[in-house]
Design a protein around this nucleic acid. Structure first.
Length: 421
RNA sequence: GGAGUGGUGGCUGAGUUGGCUGAAGGCGCACGAUUGGAAAUCGUGUUUACGUUAAUAGCGUAACGGGAGUUCGAAUCUCCCCCACUCCGCCA
């Protein structure tokens, strides 16, 4: 959520910044609703001030034996008027709030303009795309041959876009997740947490999934509960409506959780393999940072996420998202894209973002600054990494001509063998 | 799931025959006095959001778990919901 006062005072600046996203945002409407609201507010507050004043006088008048019948009758009228204005005010305020909530974050000045992922900016890469002296197979074929992945079984048990992992496939998924969590908590300095996999509406609103993206999530019937689409939701909301101490910042957490996404509107895309599932595992990195150094923290977070692929020795590249490709809540996002031989291109495996105070304002996460005043923290997060996609990348990049998968060196201690089969 | 008790400021803790309580007292914290310096002591100050404004000055409005109601007026009365604790039941 944007700061309404800032929006009001620097309307043109913000309007221009939002143009980088290349979509209509509707901030003009917010501005006029705000004017209407302030007008009403002034009227009610005047009436309330009068009521408060007279209500204080009544017992005094009574004591002096004066007649208060008339004035009480008048105040009853005032009371009704106040209720009327208050109702109208609440309606306008609700509208204003709804509109404001659906305005995306303002892109940082370093974000390039552009409409889609073709305008994203190359940042760096690691290793060159894997070369094979045979025809490489996609991971779903390899996994099928090895008996690791069974989508038909999952379709019978649940439905399409769910996966059954079996045997070494299941072990690989679990071991990769352990490897990521161990790396982040021991080497990169994050505190591991296991959050609830279900979150309430307030939390979903806090991080920006609601109210706009309800159709992307699974909601529990008859309850105010949603399956989490990412650990970002419960972890960022750990300190919702709290005031932290400045000395506690930055806070760094990592969490490995299943993620549940309805994926409305993605029918027909990436239908095979582990790339796009309704349920998948992901290790998430979350930071609560002091506003002054959140962009340094973003660079560090990105490096921490990259460290996983470097340790696994899998080719990837980093791109800076352009305005049009930027997520709703984010001010700046880097994507890490892993080399996927079956696609013949890089595929997103992590998204690292600084949300500045956009989520913190929604979720009301503050800290007490040097000057004693509570201020909003900056929130950041990034995948470190998507586990299923990492497994797919390992299978494809480490495949041998005979269909076996070579174990990445860094995973040998976890699994105790040179080949996965 | 059933029964009971309770939810007040950074913490602790008053206030529940409605009005003079944004909220006593204590602790903590900040500044000042005192001191060679410190402790102790004394004094002053110390919630947040919104509106108004050049202003983080003043003024106004709101907030005592959340919401609705009664009333000229509610932390105090009524109703609904949420949360915490204790006991019982159930379970991993």
């Amino acid at each position: 959520m944007l700061d309404l006062r800032v929006l009001r005072d620097n309307f043109q600046t913000i309007a221009n910044a939002l143009k980088k996203r290349g979509k209509e945002t509707g901030i003009e409407e917010v501005l006029s609703l705000d004017e209407k609201k302030r007008d009403l507010l002034q009227k009610v507050e005047e009436l309330k001030a009068r009521r408060n004043k007279v209500s204080k006088e009544i017992p005094v008048m009574r004591k002096n034996g004066e007649d208060v019948q008339e004035i009480m009758a008048e105040m009853k009228e005032v009371g009704l008027k106040i209720k009327e204005y208050d109702d109208e005010l609440r309606e306008v305020d609700d509208q204003l709030h709804t509109r404001l909530m659906s305005i995306p974050n303002r892109p940082d000045s370093s974000v390039p303009a552009g409409t889609d992922d073709s305008d994203n900016q190359f940042v760096r890469d690691y290793l060159k795309p894997t070369e094979f002296d045979f025809e490489p197979k996609p991971h779903w074929e390899l996994g099928d041959n090895l008996g690791w992945f069974d989508p038909e079984m999952a379709a019978r048990v649940t439905g399409t876009r769910f996966m059954f992992y079996r045997g070494m496939g299941a072990r690989l998924e679990r071991i990769v997740m352990n490897f990521m969590l161990n790396t982040h908590s021991e080497r990169n300095g994050y505190t591991e947490v296991i959050p609830p996999y279900i979150a309430n509406e307030k939390s979903m609103t806090g991080t920006g999934q609601l109210p706009k993206f309800a159709e992307d999530m699974y909601k529990l019937e008859g309850l105010d509960y949603y399956l989490i689409p990412t650990a970002e939701v419960p972890v960022t909301n750990m300190y919702r409506e709290q005031i932290l101490d400045a000395s506690e910042l930055p806070m760094r957490f990592c969490a490995g959780t299943p993620c549940f996404r309805a994926e409305a509107g993605s029918a027909g895309r990436d239908t095979r393999g582990l790339i796009r599932q309704h349920q998948f595992n992901k290790v998430e990195l979350v930071k609560l940072s002091h506003p002054d150094n959140s962009y340094d923290e973003l660079e560090l977070l990105l490096k921490d996420a990259e460290s996983i692929l470097r340790l696994l020795e899998i080719p990837y590249r980093v791109v800076l998202l352009c305005g049009g490709d930027l997520g709703f809540s984010s001010a700046k996002t880097y994507d890490i894209e892993v080399w996927m031989p079956s696609y013949g291109r890089y595929v997103e495996i992590s998204s690292c973002s600084n949300f500045e105070d956009f989520q913190a304002r929604r979720a009301n996460i503050r800290f007490r600054d040097e000057d004693g005043k509570p201020k909003f923290v900056h929130t950041l997060n990034g995948s470190g990494l998507a586990v299923g996609r990492t497994v797919a990348a390992i299978v494809e990049n480490y495949q041998q001509q005979d269909g076996r998968i070579k174990t990445p060196d860094v995973l040998i201690p976890y699994i105790g063998r040179d080949y996965l089969e």
